[in-house]
Amino acid sequence: MNAPVNGESPLKSEHDIVLARQLVRKLTQELGFSLVDQTKMVTAASELARNAFTYGRGGSMHWEKTNGGDRRGLKLVFVDEGPGIPNLELAMTDGWTSGHGLGMGLTGAKRLVNEFAIDTKVGVGTRVTIVRWK
């Protein structure tokens, strides 16, 4: 039997953030990522999972082992139904924070992955998609 190629993990508590990190570690290992690449993806996932939990009032992380040409990679989508981000440009500025963090969450996560997309609507929620290739 083949291992599943996609799935979903809840982000409803702080403990879920820890579980999400551990899941991403396991998935990147299965894909044969180098230790540095594993660590980068796990760290990016941790930042985005925390954002979804803290600012998005909880949500979920969807994962998918994906192929791009002859490359394999991991795609993660963080979805919340929180307040959305009113000023995305500002939120994507290093050091800017609406909460108690360092303001490194979004911009930092973006630097750690190969592909980054964010879709947010005030009052509806936020969806952040990241991909890291092996």
Partner: peptide, 14 residues
């Protein structure tokens, strides 16, 4: 600190 952690931290911006 493990090297992979250090590399990631700097790239993260910390």
């Amino acid at each position: 600190m493990q090297p992979a952690v250090a590399i990631t931290l700097v790239e993260l911006g910390l």
